[in-house]
Design a protein around this nucleic acid. Structure first.
Lengths: 189, 189
DNA sequence: TGTACATCAGTGAACGCGCGTTCACTGATGTAC
DNA sequence: TGTACATCAGTGAACGCGCGTTCACTGATGTAC
C-alpha cells in the first residue's frame, strides 16, 4: 500500500503497526523487531508510529496483549471442542500449538515480566487462563484448586517452552503433550 | 585490574570474559550483554575477546554451557541433601531457585534453541537432567519413565518460567513449588 | 647461557550499520459559524 | 453551503549512540640452536 494508493492518511495505522510487528515476529525474533522495521513494513515513515504509541515498549505491550487474547481464544475453542474426558489434553495441545506456531510472539509474551505501566497486558494474561480455571473448578476440590491450576499451567507452559527451544529432541509435539498430560493430570475431565 | 598491574598479557582472559559476562547478566538482561561491554568489564580493549571467542555467539554458548553445569550441580547437591521422600521437591526447589537467582542467564539458556554449532551446550543441558532421570528410574516403571521425566522437567521448568516472569503473582516461590510438586508428583521419592 | 625468531595475546582506531527518538514541517480532516 | 481555523496524522531529515567486527599494529612469550 503506497502513499499514492492510500492517500496521505493511513486510516488505521495503529492496527497496521500491530499487524506489521506480528508479521515480523513470524519471520524473525524479538531482536529483529524494531520500531523502524515496523514502520517500514507498514509503508510509513520511521516516526509515524509515534502518533499511536508513545514508545517502543507500548507497541510491545500491545503485541503481548494481542497474543494473550489469541491464546485465550484458542484455549476456549479447544476446550469447547474437546471430547469428554479430554478437556485438559485439548487445552494443553492448543497451548503448545500456539507456542510452536508463534515462537517469537510467545517468547515476547513470556520472556519478561509484564510491564507495570501497561496493566492491560497483565489483564489479558489472566483472562487467558480462565478456561483452564473453569475446568479445574469442576474436578478439583476447592482447597487444592489454586495449586492445581498453577501446576497444570506450569506443566503446559514448561512443555511449550522446552519444545520451543528444542530441549525435548525431535519427538512429535502433539504426542508428547498427550502422553505427558494424561500421565500427569489423571484428574482430567 | 589495570594494564599496568597485570602487564600486557591478561593471563586468563577467556575465563575473565565469562566472569564479566555473568556479572553483566546479574545486573541486566541479555540485551545489555554486548561483547564490548564484556571487554570493558574485563578491562581489556573491545576486540581482545576475539582472541578467545570467534564471535559473540561463541561467548553466549559458553555462558549457557556454564549455566547448565551450575544448574546440574545445584540439582545434584539438592538431591543428595534431600530427606527421604523429598528428592523431587528438593530438586524442583533448587531448579526454581537457580532460575530466580540468575534470571537473565536462565533466560539466555532457555530462551532459544541450543546452537547447532556449539554442541557442548546441548551436552551440558542433557547432563543437567541426569539427577532427575536417576531418581525417576527408582520410582517409575520403565514404560512411562521418559514421559515422567519429560513431565517433571516441564512442570518444574514451567514453574520457574512463570515465577520468573511474575505470572504467578507475589506468592512465596518456595511455598508454591512445594505445594505444586507434592500435589502433582505424588510419586515423589 | 644467549640470541634469533616465530607465535601469541594484546592495543587502538576505524568501518558501516541500524537503532530509538526528536525536530520542524505539511497535507488532510472536521467543526463552528 | 462556504469558509476560517484548530487539530490530527503524516513526512523527511537529523541527533547521538553503541554495536559487532576488521585492520594494522606491537609488546610479551617461548622455543631452537
Amino acid at each position: 500500500v503506497s502513499t499514492s494508493e492510500r492517500g496521505y492518511h493511513h486510516g488505521d495505522l495503529r492496527a497496521a503497526c500491530l499487524d506489521a510487528a506480528l508479521a515480523l515476529l513470524e519471520t524473525g525474533d524479538e531482536a529483529d523487531l524494531s520500531l523502524r522495521a515496523v514502520a517500514r513494513r507498514a509503508g510509513v515513515s520511521p516516526n509515524a508510529p509515534y502518533r499511536h504509541y508513545p514508545d517502543k515498549d507500548a507497541l510491545l505491550a500491545a503485541l503481548a496483549t494481542r497474543g494473550y487474547q489469541q491464546l485465550g481464544d484458542d484455549l476456549a475453542a479447544a476446550d469447547a471442542a474437546a471430547e469428554p474426558g479430554r478437556h485438559f489434553v485439548a487445552m494443553a495441545t492448543a497451548y503448545v500449538a500456539y507456542a510452536l506456531a508463534h515462537p517469537a510472539l510467545f517468547r515476547l509474551m513470556f520472556g519478561h515480566p509484564c510491564s507495570r505501566s501497561h496493566p492491560e497486558t497483565t489483564e489479558a494474561a489472566h483472562a487467558a487462563a480462565v478456561p483452564l480455571a473453569a475446568r479445574a473448578a469442576e474436578v478439583v476440590p476447592p482447597g487444592s484448586r489454586d495449586t492445581f491450576v498453577t501446576g497444570a499451567w506450569s506443566l503446559v507452559h514448561g512443555l511449550a517452552a522446552l519444545l520451543l527451544d528444542g530441549k525435548l529432541g525431535d519427538s512429535d509435539p502433539a504426542a508428547v503433550v498427550d502422553r505427558v498430560i494424561t500421565t500427569m493430570l489423571p484428574a482430567s475431565t
